[in-house]
Design a protein around this nucleic acid. Structure first.
Lengths: 125, 125
DNA sequence: CTCGTAGTTCGATGGATCTCGTAGTACGGT
DNA sequence: ACCGTACTACGAGATCCATCGAACTACGAG
């Protein structure tokens, strides 16, 4: 038996995302309750469609993978491959539909706390 | 030496609360990311100034104490004694000042998810 | 095919966290 | 003074979580 990566478990490189209806508030909050993941969210809010590596996360690659996964499984972000890179996006529409206003106040709070100036106009593409 | 409760550590029954400026977003989110504590928050949102025991929590008393403490130390609620009862209140003003809109969307999300009808008069003015 | 880049998986470790029962303190009434 | 109610503090057990390094897969370019 191969000691690692049982290989080809997902040949098309597709990723599982929870349906909109399956997004749970506790999971979303838990996902956001981590400084590293909050950073990711801020980065994606400022810059949609960013690859994992493009966000300068101060941790190892495996840790980064872990955090992105937590966010995806909670329904906060979507991920899809683009060549060798993995592109991340906030699930704005879904989150707004399920928990109206939550994401916005969350991002605003994160930006405020980190002293970021989310200048008016950059919020929406 | 008394094996438990070193007694009179706080003769006036005063409780430590973080200052408004010391409230951290991660801590607030983490505090809210628990079903039990989310229940407490919903209860306090619907009914300010409630004693610990008045919320029908499905857990032991020591566990309840623990959850209330987490909420207090995160800056989500205040607690003060009134006779033998301990009264809890949401720190609405402080939270609104530090993270505008967050508490409202949080409570609304919790109510929505739990199918609670947030009294058609209290939310929309 | 080979190499480099991007990200994953596994396994381990150390630290939080949840939960509880038991034993304790504080207050208010009788 | 005594008792009951309300809640706390401690200690233990179980589980979860963040983090890492090492080994691995997948894709693209030359």
């Amino acid at each position: 038996m191969a000691p690692h990566g049982t290989g080809a478990a997902n040949p098309d490189r597709l990723l599982d995302h929870p349906e909109r209806a399956d997004i749970r508030l506790e999971a979303v909050l838990h996902a956001c309750a981590d400084p590293m993941r909050l950073l990711i969210i801020q980065a994606l809010a400022a810059d949609p469609s960013t690859a994992c590596g493009e966000i300068g996360l101060a941790c190892s690659k495996s840790t980064a993978t872990h955090h992105f996964r937590v966010l995806r499984e909670a329904g906060v972000i979507t991920q899809h491959y683009r060549g060798t890179a993995k592109i991340n996006e906030l699930r704005r529409e879904d989150l707004d539909a399920v928990f109206p206003g939550l994401l916005d106040s969350l991002v605003a709070a994160a930006n405020k706390q980190s002293g970021k100036t989310t200048e008016p106009g950059s919020l929406r593409g």
